[in-house]
Structures are given as structure tokens and as C-alpha cells.
Write a protein that binds this DNA or RNA. Structure first.
Lengths: 243, 243
DNA sequence: AACACCGAAACATCCGAGGTCTGTTGCAGG
DNA sequence: CCTGCAACAGACCTCGGATGTTTCGGTGTT
């Protein structure tokens, strides 16, 4: 195994073992390199890699630090990964979002504070009467992010955040091409908000399902893959082997 | 922004734009470095970082290649990230798994081929009568992996795979300390298998919920936080309306 | 045709020399 | 005593070259 990969594991272990706590500063490059038994160049490669996934944070002129390691920060790095799947597997991501979003919305109906719910309502009001598609989608992202945050589960929230990225583009596309999509989105958002404000988790869940499924259904048709077995529709083809 | 980060973005763009397709070989270090306008050292840092998240694959003596970029490969890198959350946030990960696993199991009941179901059954039979806890958990992981794979959604499968890692430790701990946990796990696995084999998605979903919730409940008690209704009851999620 | 050897190509690793940014220190002035 | 500016030291950034290792493919022998 390359020395750089060893270094990555070593640093990872130092963090997991507790030798390096979140916020701690690492020894200076030269020192750490000697301690791990490799050159500064190789060590820098390791540090850079850990930097990309938000485990380390290097500040020029200051030093290298361990990040807070909070789930939202680390899962957030997943956005980078998800970026590589733009067109082909968007449906798969959307299918997962369709599973998580309703659950998160139901949780939000139970856990959100009254203040948060008020802010959620304000978000809906901020939108103009005839918003641009971009403004609508931006508001859409904020709306769902606040709900995900309201679920009280940071892991769930970050995951949804990552999944929302690639599907946002699809939503913009939809807004531009599908008649009535904007109005429908606003209606559904209001319904979701009402359900949360009424503390009705099951109702909130159902509206969220309808909401996400709408995008999913449209996208599936738009992609012309009416026969894609990846998505949970009503029935499946039971392998025509036995019978 | 550091030149290395610029290089990362450049390479990322080259891939997303299609200039570099999965499986393609990158220009040699020196050449690419000159083209991107930086030194080999800095380029190597960028490549190493992209390597960690499985976007690039470097083979000494051969060259640097773009990976297949399949969701399972990229999401798999998330396991590395998840490793940093061992004790504190396991409950949050488990809560997400409790949302995804039942959905995946229901999908599997609809989409798995008869052959796959046969293999799933064999997996259950492979276990001895009095397995060690380690063997049981290993079998447990395989069992759920096969089901996740059977959902037909590679993103969902990879995500569950990543989430299973940190919770596996918890499951081992449980097997060692809770009386009857082993027997209960086997019973529930059989029930899940039966529901899938019978093509009963809702039944499969419910058993999966019960199964994961069992671990979650135990863990919550074990951690002494008996007061966290993180997840409401989750049925009525119309991922599949076959009956 | 199968196998062993050899050389070219490409990555791995290391090193040392500047460059740049940041936080701190110390002095002068209000 | 407090404030503001300038110089300093520490730490990371970038570079380019030299040397070691591994892999691939061509060549020659058996």
C-alpha cells in the first residue's frame, strides 16, 4: 500500500482513537511527516485528500486543524460525489429522496418548534406572485431544507441536502417546460406547511410523498424511460421463470 | 483558491462535461500538469484527493484512469466518512436506516428475481444452530445487503451499505449482552424472507421495521437516552400499492 | 506456441528552495 | 492605559528535479 494511503489511515486512526479531537491542531507538516515516516510531499497528498472530505481544515499561515466532524459537515462532502451523477441516475436519487423526504416531513410535524414553523410559513410568503423558476426552486430548496432540519436528525438532514442538489436541476427543467408546475408546487408547499403547523405527521407525510412523486413522475416521462425497473411503480415483472 | 483545488475542479469538470468518460485514461502526470498550469506535486495532491472518493483510480506503472463512477462505487466512499461517527451519532444513523431499510425490503419483495430469493433463503440456511455472534452479524450484513441489492436501486443499496457499517458494531454489542437477541434476529430474518418470497411488500416492510426498530430500541436504552421519539410509526408510505 | 528476458513508460517518493499568508509581538502615539 | 501600525516568525503553498518501483509490451529463445 502506498505510503500516502498509510498516512491517511494513520491520521484517521488518530482522530477516531481520540488522540486528535475535533478542533485540535495537527503537528506542523515537517514534524508530522517525520513522525509518520514519510516526506512532506506525500503527507501533503494525504492531508489534501482528508481535506476534500472535510475531515481536516488547513489554514495557510496558521496550521492544519481537525474539523468539527459534525454529520452535516461530513455528509455534506457527499454533495461533491453526487455531482458526478447528473443525468443517468437522477431517478435513483429521486427515488431515495422520495423515501426520506416524507419521513423527514412527518418527523418535522412532531419535532419542529413553534418558532421554526413560523419561519417556515414566512418562507412561503416571501415568494412573489409570479416568481421566476429559479427563485421558486431556490425557495423550494430552502423550504425543504428547513423541514429536514426540523426532523431533528442531522444525518437525515444532510442526506436530504445532498440528494436535493442533483434533483434541483431537474426541478428547474420541469418548471420551465411543464405548464402549471409552478402553481402546483406552491399549492403543495402550502399543504405541507399546513399539515406541519397542525402537527399532523401522517398528513404531512402524505403531502410530501405526493410532492416528490410529482417530480419523479414527470421526470420519468420526460426521460422517456417508461420501462425503467429501478423505480417503485405499481407492479413488477415477476421473473418469468417459474410458474 | 489554492491551485490544487482549482485542479480538482478542473478534473471534475472534465469528467462531468464528458471530456473524460468512465474508464478513460488521463494524460500522464507531466502533461496534465502543464495543461492545467501547475506543478506535478500539486497535481498529485488533486489526484490523490479524487482517488480517495473513488473518482480516479491510479495504477502505478500504468496510468491514471477514471473509475466507472457507478453509484455503488462513489457512495461507497461514504463509508469512509461514516467511520468518523462511531458512538455519538449512531442513533441518528440508525434512525435513517430505519426509514430506508423497510422501503428497500418492500421494493425487494416486488423486484427480486426468483433466483435471488432462492439465494436469500440459502443464506439463512448457512447459519449454524448456535452461531457465534460475529458469524451471526456477518450473516446479518449479507442478508440485508442482498435485500438492498434486490430493491433494484443502486443508490439505495449503497446508502444502506454505508449505514450498516457503524450500526454493525452496535449489533455485535447487542448480541453479546442481550439475552435472546440471537434467536430473535433469526426469527425476524426468516419472517422477512418469507414475506419477500410470498411477494408481500407490505408484510416485508413491516417485518423490516420491526427488525431495525428492535436494534434501535435496545441501543437507545443501552445508551440511557430513553426519551427520544426520533421516529414515528412508519407505515402508509405508498412506495408500492400492490397488495 | 509458450515462456523468459528486457527496455520503455508511468507512477511513487523524496528533497530542498523560494513564495505567501497569518497571528503575534513590540513600539510609538493618543 | 489603551490603540494602531509595522516588523517578525511560523506555517502552509508551490515548484522542479532526481531516483526508485511497477506494469506493459515487444523480442528472442526453447
Amino acid at each position: 500500500m502506498p505510503v500516502t494511503d498509510v498516512a491517511i489511515d494513520k491520521i484517521k486512526d488518530m482522530i477516531i482513537s481520540g488522540e486528535l479531537a475535533p478542533g485540535d491542531r495537527l503537528p506542523k507538516e515537517a514534524e508530522l511527516a517525520q513522525r509518520l515516516g514519510l516526506s512532506r510531499s506525500s503527507l501533503r497528498e494525504a492531508v489534501k485528500a482528508l481535506c476534500l472530505i472535510r475531515v481536516l481544515d488547513v489554514r495557510q499561515g496558521d496550521g492544519t486543524y481537525v474539523t468539527s466532524l459534525e454529520p452535516n459537515l461530513l455528509l455534506d462532502a457527499m454533495t461533491f460525489v453526487v455531482d458526478f451523477h447528473r443525468d443517468d441516475t437522477v431517478l435513483d436519487f429521486l427515488a431515495v429522496r422520495r423515501i426520506l423526504e416524507p419521513a423527514a416531513t412527518a418527523l418535522a410535524a412532531l419535532h419542529m418548534s413553534d418558532d421554526d414553523i413560523t419561519e417556515l410559513g414566512q418562507l412561503l410568503g416571501e415568494l412573489e406572485d409570479s416568481p421566476t423558476v429559479e427563485a421558486l426552486v431556490a425557495n423550494d430548496l430552502q423550504f425543504h431544507r428547513k423541514i429536514a432540519d426540523g426532523s431533528g436528525n442531522p444525518v437525515l438532514c444532510s442526506l436530504l441536502d445532498s440528494l436535493s442538489g442533483p434533483t434541483a436541476r431537474a426541478r428547474i427543467w420541469r418548471g420551465l417546460t411543464q405548464e402549471g408546475a409552478v402553481a402546483k408546487t406552491r399549492e403543495q408547499h402550502s399543504a405541507i406547511y399546513d399539515a406541519i403547523a397542525a402537527r399532523e405527521p401522517e398528513l404531512a407525510r402524505s403531502w410530501a410523498t405526493v410532492h416528490v412523486a410529482g417530480v419523479e413522475q414527470w421526470l420519468r416521462n420526460a426521460l422517456g424511460t417508461a420501462d425503467d425497473p429501478t423505480v417503485p411503480d405499481s407492479d413488477a415483472e415477476p421473473a418469468a421463470e417459474a410458474s
